[in-house]
Design a protein around this nucleic acid. Structure first.
Lengths: 340, 340
DNA sequence: TTGAAAGCGTTACCAA
DNA sequence: TTGGTAACGCTTTCAA
């Protein structure tokens, strides 16, 4: 069923039918109802391709995910973020186009998305330090929101978990509990999320006049074996850590395994704080304090980024907007300082 | 830069320029080269919206992911599958539109995708037993490929890991090794992948005239705590299992934890076989046999589904095609029968 | 409150 | 081998 046929059936012009269906005010209520009824009965839906061409809009947002990890193409956090964004777009009549980008293709992908008019804007994932995509997108003039922050850069829109503060507060908590040897199991520090986490960790050390020990800091792709291996090696040091600050739950599972293999007890001999999206995956809350960005925060971030971008598209002259997602400190139970 | 301007610059008609750029044979090579050069110089790219309307194609494939899990919206396997598909579509000039569907919205989403002509076809994820989407999509006439199989249904296109055979072979291996009490930690059995895995497990038992013990079979969302809890309870039985057949690596991490907490050794006291996408996440190969669909298989499945669907769109009258992805049995090291 | 007609930027048919 | 022109199915301007 096309607009033409529908309007002929109704004995109205295409103009009137279109207006009735799109909620224009200058249509009489009785006509509108009649049109709506007929449209529903005839199962009419406007051809999105025609609407796009006629309106000059794409009614689509691109999500460009770079291939950065060895293991995943899309990590679970991104998947949740993107899923939430997708649901949000649907509410606004927008589609989500997903693009996976090899680093060498990334620039041409953005250029093509812009010049072929297939999207109205993009969400940029996995920002890096000095990320070249920022100036690129500005020069292209394609509206964008970054999922993450780029330290040092300004004048762009982003939505981000407060990684730095999260790790600062978590580190501070451990220090206040008496810990002095706190391990940081971080992600790849070329990505700003990891860089910021380390910054928060270092800040808390500085505030408390504690020296950093590089042998307690590692960064890698966030897998279970990484957590196990790193924790195992650190625990074998002559002066081992008494607490672990861990960037993801899978890594924490590895840490837990290393700890338990030594016969140590989490929450008594060793404290673990996890920064991740899914508290429930780690089932010994009540034993160890946990600092976490909950999965719902990730979803909220996706929703926020989506609405921000749509707003930006509708109002291109508004200044860049940014939003820091709150994280929350969840303490399973009281955990005294480590003393083994 | 639009086609009109480009053609004016060149002193050619839009027709000729379009033909030159789209590789039509009736253009002289010299003209084609001249056009291509000018297009590249002027950074011309056809407006995809116009192309779509003119050709009647959408140049887009929809991936509709139902919200089935409590924890993830998109599970990591889907993410990899979808990522691989996305890369494949890009090669063919197609876009991937991602839609997350609440169960109650699913039908209307498919109808809308079809009638608004925003996709040329869809990939259906997470098939269920007697999945209503099959007849729905057939009646709508929207080309589709299912990621997974629907037992009992016929005459549709699918790409699937060979879940049933994988679990049959894995179970058989354990039986041949002397195991008689084999636990199955499965996913939600409303989803066909889990149903098929159980079928394979049961088949191997039947072939060897072993009775099933329902107390050794559980199914749930695939999380670490699920694996831990289920394994812990089973190991406390008066006649505990000597082997575990596990549907995902996170679950296996939980099983391992339960096993190790009892002071048991994997590969000696207890065998574990994992069916999952990422061998490397479980780092004690060499100790326990592992049966696994590797992550590359998942990616291959995504590529396969994408190419099949595009082929189907180009050739709507071809009969349904299906493809069973091979899985491989990876044995870390020789593992004798359990005997504790 | 309604309608006629001109776009939107391509592709594709029919002539030349 | 090239070009004129009519689609494609909407939205939107202008007129009634």
């Amino acid at each position: 069923m096309k607009l033409k046929q529908l309007s002929e059936n109704l004995g109205l012009s295409q103009t009137t039918v279109s207006r009735a269906l799109n909620g224009y005010p200058e249509v009489s209520e009785s006509t509108r109802r009649r049109v709506q009824r007929a449209a529903a009965a005839g199962n009419y839906r406007p051809d999105l391709r025609a609407t796009r061409l006629a309106t000059g809009k794409a009614y689509a947002i691109g999500h460009v995910v770079p291939m950065v990890n060895k293991n995943d193409v899309i990590n679970p956090i991104f998947a949740e973020f993107i899923a939430a964004a997708s649901l949000t777009y649907a509410n606004y009549g927008y589609e989500l186009m997903l693009r996976i980008a090899r680093t060498e293709d990334e620039e041409s992908i953005y250029r093509k998305l812009a010049s072929s008019r297939s999207v109205d804007g993009v969400v940029v994932h996995s920002p890096l330090l000095n990320d070249p995509r920022l100036p690129l997108l500005k020069s292209i003039g394609l509206p964008f929101v970054i999922h993450g922050r780029v330290p040092g850069a300004e004048d762009y829109s982003w939505v981000c978990m407060d990684n730095q503060n999260a790790f600062k507060q978590a580190t501070k908590l451990l220090i206040d509990l008496g810990h002095r040897r706190i391990a940081l199991l971080n992600g790849q520090e070329a990505m700003t999320f990891a860089w910021l986490r380390r910054a928060g960790y270092e800040e808390a050390h500085g505030d408390n006049r504690l020296d950093l020990d590089e042998s307690l800091i590692t960064s890698d792709d966030l897998t279970e074996p990484y957590g196990y291996q790193a924790a195992k090696e650190m625990l074998a040091l002559s002066d081992p850590p008494t607490a672990f600050l861990v960037s993801s739950y899978v890594v924490a599972l590895g840490v837990r395994r290393a700890v338990e293999r030594l016969g140590l007890t989490i929450g008594k001999d060793v404290s673990i704080i996890i920064h991740d999206d899914e508290l429930s995956y780690f089932d010994n809350s009540g034993v160890t304090p946990q600092f976490t960005a909950t999965r719902s925060s990730v979803r909220n971030a996706g929703v926020k980024a989506a609405t921000m971008l749509i707003e930006k598209i509708r109002n291109p002259d508004n200044p860049p907007e940014s939003h820091m997602m709150e994280t929350q400190l969840v303490i399973g139970s009281s955990t005294g300082p480590c003393c083994r």
